[in-house]
Structures are given as C-alpha cells and as structure tokens.
Design a protein around this nucleic acid. Structure first.
Length: 808
RNA sequence: GCCCGGGUGGCGAAAUCGGCAGACGCAACGGACUUAAAAUCCGUUAUCCUCACGGGUGUGUGGGUUCAAGUCCCACCCCGGGCACCA
C-alpha cells in the first residue's frame, strides 16, 4: 500500500466529530470494577481564549488520563469553568453586554477550543460555577458554616483595592498591592465583612501536611507552612498602672533583658497614652503608604513606663513603626541583646542593652556589639539564672501562669479568610438583615438566592446589587417584616474550594454531592496546575475539605493526594502574557500544524515541571516527526509474513526498550520530553531497518508504536489504529507490556579507560565476567600503547559498564 | 537577608544509582532524488591542534573527596521563583 501524506486538519476534524458523537468514550464510572483514578487539571477562568499555559496544563493531564485508561483504570477526567469574577463585570462595562452573556459565550468558545485540542474530558460532568445549580451549594455551605460559627461578620480593617472596588483576602495582597492589579496599592478600609474561620483549622492544616507530603512538591508545602506561620511562645503582661500590656514572645527566656516595651502604632493603648497625636497619626499614615521593600525602623517614647513582671524593672513604653498590630498582641518587649530588630531599634535611640543569655561554651562581649539570638545559658535573670534557654522557657511559662501574669501561647500568621466582595458577579451571600431580628440566615428551602441577571453595571460606587430593589427588599424569614438582603457576594475562591467534589455528582439537586460517590474517587489521585495557586486556592481547598468532613459530608482529610505543579510558558525571556505582547495563540498553532503537533511540542520542549521556552522553529520538528510516523505506518500496513531477519530482532529490541522507557516515564517523573525522544529514536531506527524487516515483525511493531504514541498524539493514533484495521479506540486498548528478553542487547561495547581517560572499547556479550573483561582490556590494541613502560597499579572493572586501568 | 529551583554545544535539552558528557529535536552544512526548487531520504555538526592517525581541553567560578565527578562535599558568582520587620 502506498504511503499516505499526513493531513492533520482532515484527521482531527474527522475524529473530533466521532468523539463528540460518542460521549461514552470518555465517561467515567463505567460500572466496571476497575480501579479508580481521578486526574484533575485546574479549571480555567473563562476569559474567552485558551492560552499556552492552559494548553500545557491540559496536555500533561490528558497524556496521563489516556495512559491511565490504557493501564486499565476507570479514569475520572472532568473539566469546568471558574466563571464568577471581576473580568465579566469589566467586560460588561466595556462592551455593554451582561456579565452572564459574556461569560457563557466565552465558555462556549473555550469549550470548543478544548475539544479541538482533543482533550479527553467527560463533558457530561462539566460545571460552571456561575450557575444557580452550582452556587446554591456555596450558599448551602455558607449556612452550614454559619450554624457552626465558621462564618461570622465582623467590623475590621480590610484590604481594599480601589481598582477592583472591593475588599481582598490577605492571600490576595501581594507586596502591598492587589494580586490582579500589581501596581495598585491596597488601602486599609474599615468595613463590616464576612469572614470564614480558617484559623479554626490552623493546626490541622499544618499538621496534616504529613499526610500529603509524599505527593506534594516540597516548595508548595513550605509556602503553606510559612503562610500559616505557627510560632510557639509565651504571652506576658507588663504592668502599666492598673492596666496591663500584653506582649507575645518566642523568647521568654530573655525577658530579664527587656529594656523597653514597643507598641504598634495602631495598638489601642497608643492612641490613649501618646501625647502628640499628630505624630502618631503621621506614623500610621506613613505605614499605610509604606513600600514594604525597606522601611527604616523608627519610633518615639510615649513618656510612660511599664513594669516587667519578672524583674520588676521599670521600662519605657515606645511606639514603633515595625511592630505589627496584626501579629501576636500588637505589642512587644524589646530585648536588644538577643534580637536583631530590637538591637537596631534600641541602638538607634540609645535604649540600654542588657545581656541575659550567654553561649553554652562562652561569654558575650561587654558591652554587646551585636545581638546574640541563639539559645544558650540564661544569666542575670534572678532565680532562672544558669538554666539552658529551653528549660528557662518552660519554667518561666509555669511561673507566669502561677502568678497570673502570663502563659505559654501559640500565635499564627494565618488570619481568617475575608470572603465578602462588594461586587455583582458572584455568589449572593444568603443572609437577610432584619431591623428587628438582626442577621437572619435564608432558610435552606429558599435556596438558591438567585443572582438577578438584569442589573445595570456602572462600575461606580458600591455593590451593584444594592441598587436592585427587587433583590434587596425581602420579607424577614423569621418575622416576616420588611428586611433587606445582604448584597455582598462571595470571593470566587469559595467556588474553586470544592468544585472537584461536585464533578463526582454534578447533577445532584438534593445535595452538593452524594458522599458515596465522593468516597469512590477521593482523594484526587493527581491534581495538576500552576504553582501560583500554592497558597490561595490550595489552602482554601484544604480548609474546605476539613470543614466538609466535620459536617459529616465526607470522610477524607485531604482533597489531593498528589499535586503536580507545571512550569510557566516563557517567550523572549518572560512569561507569556497579554500585557507583554508575547502570546502565541493556540488556534494559530492548530491551524498551521494541528492539535497533535501542538500538544507534542509542548510536552517535548521541556520536562513538565520546568519553565518552557517557546520556540516556533522547534514546533516544525514535531510536525515532521508525526508525519514520519504516519507515512511509515500507512505504507507498511499491508506487509505480512516473511522469515525472521536480523533486522526484525533489532527492531523488536528497540521497540521493547522504548516501551520500557516510556512506561517508566509515565510511572515516575513524567519526563515526556524523553519519552517522545525515545519514540523518535525508535522511528529513526525503523526507517533504517524498514526494507530488511519481515512483514511479520512489522505487524508486531506497528500497533505498539501507535499505542505508545497515542497519549501524546491521540488524533493521529486513532486514525492509524483504524488504518491498521483495528477496532475500538486506541486509548481503550491495554497498554503493552515490555518483554525484557526481547529488549535485551546481546553484545555491548564496554569503554576502557586508562587513568580515567577513554582509550578504547571492547565488544563483549552482555554479562561478561570481570576477569574476562580485564583480560580483554589489557590486550586491546588501542589500550596497550598507553600501558607501555608503565606499571599497572590496579584495574577497576564494572561489568557491562566500564573498565578503568590505573597505571603509574 | 532566608528558603527553594536552575546555570551543560549556535539554540531547546539528555545523562533517574558517581562509570563513554551532549541522547532527541531545532538551526547549519554536505550528499541523494529533481530540469529546478520545495518536500522527502541519507549523512556531518562541542571546541582547539593535526593533511591525516591521533591528541589536548570542556558541564557558572575556585578548591576538595574518588580509580572515576555534570552528578558527592566546602566556598563563591549569576539567573528565576517564594518568603521577608511574624517578635
């Protein structure tokens, strides 16, 4: 049969329409008792167009999903849309189109792009978070949490992005700026807000990392650990007349060296005791504008003194700009001899320095010239003198507790998650403000509180929902009196905190999901996405899981067993982004080369965890490779029979070596770049052997070649599978098993070194013994000249690997 | 400042356990096919010296361990990311 020329457009359109017509192909939970495998890629925001970051994310996941199908698993591989959020409102302003309309047309566009890429999603499980069928469960969870005190309302200083015109969670503030507007400074605004009590799970979020550390990148865990920021220490009250100033410290063993107390400028006591209020206000204002890069420490004396409860010493009370109100108690004791920051501050203002801890094996200079921050032996500390730091901490905590002026304490950097947003395009918070009953939850049977669709987006002022009387005005569910709905909507990270559970049971109208279905699939076998979600999405998701477990919905502790974070797509030295103008449109790639080429290029150019440098010229290489395979298979399809030849043995050897390699890549590191390189090597070798191979061998080689390539280039491989006269989709065939006997080399070249330098090679049967190898090496023509006049000191022989002759 | 990655040909990269550095691809060059070009197929391609045989050098820098180091150890430089007054 003559070869066919590779025409990706024809092939891909043909198979896409077949796949579309057969949703059962990708349907999970086939009822078969196959082991379950849940492969999940992070759902996109429907901006309207896939970018290369998505293509990379989904190509990795799809290769894995298809491979796992072939390995006999029942694979759940769903996709959905993180479809609430600001851009829809901005677009509404710009194009005068309702956010819903804009969003759904974007979803349609991106869905068809994904289909065009050939991703094997179970589209029957598709979800969009902006539909009432989905967000009603956000509301349901909100009510459940409200009942348990896990959501609450509180007046507080919150992060406000003027650009978004809404508040942000702490996690969404990056370097003092908005995570979506990197140059917009976040302001602090006093507002009444809804909070989710993430801190109720601080310890669990930290401690349960043990349960997932085997499957998560260390760097993500470290980031979460830092974010939670648990510090174990003590709280101690310094006396101040009738009042007390409570400080938090991790080094209570240094308390005899405390030479002043420093308050955060926002500390309530600051405002009440500072004489010069203008000075205080100036400091607070300066803090609000501060560029966190580096701010010089400064402060001023309040004119008041506090009493150290341990030593009885009177120490001055200062206000300092480096003391954070949001951490610990908002007040510190400064121990300049043993803390770098305190040292800097106290040196600047001439506050005394008193050393109270010495190194275990030495002394400190007097006066202290630099702070000594390590543990050591406590000195000059009354009855605690002579104790090692750790022991002193314990004893001092007990002492403080007994005397009633302090105790051991733990503080966290993690704060409760502010989930209120003064925006329209989000999940309405299901609460009613009644003038007589106060805050009243919407009864479950009235859910969902539907987001009205006929809303005028002006972009000005407060939440657009406030101006929709039909939404706002409501009868109080408790007393029936005229009341008003809450008009804040939920942070979109609420939507993505549990969406992967909904995939297991996406049509459920009675509950967010059937616990039995979740139990089948969870925890997620493999989650794949960008590292930028290391703390936001991934910490919220872990919190949500623990919350759902505690309300009895699920039994798993953690949502994700294995997490893979892929690298960024780089072009011209920076991340592909619209603002830099270096984006490559997947549609153009598809039009030019086809989806298979695009997918293979992105997997070939770099290992998945590393950043990928996009180079158009290399794309052609992958297109050439697929075409080469295509021609080879089509022109050899009908060759059969014939006697076994040496070429056959070589071809089968390479085939099974390649299969072993690819199987191993899938089962360990996912270095698909080397898997694809292996397929190229195999193909190159087959080209050389083609004319001398028998038809019999060809019939063994071709199907396996197609199967091995299928996870990477599904369209081409389905087409070739059909060309081969096989029935059924190629990715439902079982993955072939490499035969080590066939893969075995019968002869190898073992390099011979003299003093570590390569001087020759000996050709031997595999497994040749040490003595024989040594004999051959010492007799080799290429080697003997290097031994002349020298004395052979020793010979190192590593069978099948290398021989090194050491001479003097 | 601290914590993670990374630094290998003209380029993207490979070398999973300390054992032939540069697989595979791109680009370039040569050959075959062609009236010609494209496509395709077959080759060459780290670098320096040599007509060649062959040899020297070479994985950011400097040291070290080892028969043997891209790989391990120590010190440092550069690039990317994260954290950064967290008491």
């Amino acid at each position: 049969m003559p070869e066919k020329s590779y025409s990706p457009q024809d092939i891909e359109v043909k198979w896409q329409s077949r796949w579309d017509a057969s949703p059962e192909l990708y349907r999970a939970d086939t009822g078969a008792d196959r082991p379950k495998y849940y492969v999940l890629e992070m759902l996109p925001y429907p901006s309207g167009k896939l970018h290369m970051g998505h293509v990379r994310n989904y190509s990795i996941g799809d290769a894995l999903a298809r491979y796992m199908w072939m390995r006999g698993y029942d694979v759940l591989h769903p996709m959905g849309w993180d479809s609430f959020g600001m851009p829809a409102e901005n677009a509404a302003l710009k194009f005068k189109k309702p956010p819903a309309e804009w969003t759904f047309s974007n979803i349609a566009a991106m869905r068809s792009q994904m289909k065009r890429m050939g991703f094997s999603y179970d589209w029957e499980r598709e979800i969009a978070t902006c539909t009432p069928e989905y967000y009603r469960w956000n509301q349901w969870f909100f009510l459940k949490m409200f009942e348990r005190g896990l959501v609450y309302r509180k007046q507080s200083k919150v992060n406000w992005c003027p650009e978004c015109a809404t508040v942000l969670a702490n996690e969404q503030v990056v370097d003092g700026c908005c995570w979506r507007h990197e140059t917009t400074k976040v302001l602090l605004k006093e507002l009444e807000q809804w909070f989710c009590k993430t801190t109720a799970y601080s310890d669990e979020l930290l401690d349960d990392m043990k349960q997932i550390e085997a499957g998560w990148p260390e760097r993500v865990l470290t980031m979460q650990k830092n974010w939670i920021g648990r510090s174990v220490g003590s709280e101690v009250d310094f006396g101040f007349g009738e009042q007390k100033i409570r400080v938090f410290t991790t080094r209570v063993d240094t308390i005899y060296g405390a030479t002043c107390v420093i308050l955060a400028p926002e500390h309530p006591l600051s405002a009440s005791i500072v004489a010069d209020q203008a000075q205080l206000k100036a400091m607070i204002d300066e803090q609000a504008r501060k560029d966190p890069a580096d701010v010089e420490k400064n402060g001023f004396f309040t004119g008041h003194y506090a009493t150290n409860p341990f030593s009885g010493a009177q120490v001055p009370i200062w206000v300092g700009n480096f003391v954070l109100m949001g951490y610990g108690t908002g007040a510190i004791m400064a121990v300049p001899a043993h803390d770098e920051r305190d040292f800097e501050f106290c040196t600047k203002y001439g506050i005394p320095i008193r050393a109270v801890v010495r190194p275990v094996d030495g002394t400190l200079p007097d006066p202290v010239t630099e702070p000594f921050g390590d543990y050591g032996i406590v000195e000059n500390s009354g009855e605690f003198t002579g104790l090692p730091s750790a022991e002193a901490r314990t004893k001092m905590n007990a002492f403080a507790e007994a005397k009633g002026f302090g105790n051991a304490a733990i503080t966290y950097r993690l704060k409760d998650w502010g989930i209120s947003r003064q925006r329209y395009w989000g999940t309405p918070i299901p609460m009613v403000h009644c003038p007589s009953c106060g805050l009243v939850p919407v009864p479950y049977e009235q859910l969902p509180v539907v987001l009205p669709l006929d809303v005028d987006i002006t972009g000005a002022g407060e939440s657009p929902l406030k101006r929709v009387p039909s939404f706002v005005n409501v009868a109080c569910p408790k007393c029936g009196a005229a009341a008003q709905r809450e008009t804040d909507t939920m942070d979109t990270f609420v939507d993505s905190s549990w969406y992967f559970y909904r995939y297991t049971d996406p049509q459920n109208t009675e509950a967010p999901f059937d616990p039995a279905k979740v139990a089948q699939w969870f925890p997620i076998s493999q989650y794949i996405g960008g590292v930028e979600h290391a703390i936001l999405h991934l910490i919220y998701s872990r919190f949500w899981t623990k919350m759902m477990r505690d309300i009895g919905l699920i039994t798993n502790n953690e949502p994700v067993r294995n997490l893979f974070t892929q690298g960024m797509v780089i072009k011209d030295g920076t991340k592909m982004s619209k603002s830099v103008g270096n984006v490559v449109d997947p549609d153009e790639m598809i039009a030019k080369f086809g989806a298979d080429t695009c997918r293979m290029y992105i997997l070939f150019a770099a290992p998945p965890e590393r950043d990928l440098d996009w180079r158009e010229s290399s794309v052609e290489g992958l297109h050439r490779f697929i075409a080469r395979v295509y021609r080879f298979v089509t022109r050899n399809v009908e060759r059969t029979g014939g006697d076994v030849t040496e070429a056959d043995r070589q071809a089968l050897r390479k085939l099974h070596q390649t299969l072993a390699k690819i199987t191993q890549d899938f089962d360990s590191r996912w270095h698909f770049n080397t898997s694809i390189a292996g397929l190229m090597e195999l193909t190159n070798e087959l080209y050389l052997l083609e004319s001398t191979m028998s038809g019999t061998a060809m019939q063994q080689v071709l199907p396996m070649l197609v199967q091995m390539l299928a996870p990477f280039a599904p369209y081409t491989c389905e087409e070739l599978w059909e060309e081969l006269g096989r029935t059924g989709p190629v990715f439902r065939q079982s993955w072939p098993i490499a035969d080590p006997e066939l893969a075995k080399e019968d002869a190898i070249e073992v390099p011979v070194q003299v003093n570590g330098k390569l001087r020759g090679r000996v050709r031997v049967a595999i497994g040749t013994g040490k003595d024989e190898l040594e004999r051959l090496a010492l007799a080799d023509d290429k080697v003997t000249p290097w031994l002349e006049g020298k004395q052979v000191d020793k010979v190192i022989v590593v069978p099948d690997k290398l021989i090194n002759i050491v001479v003097k």
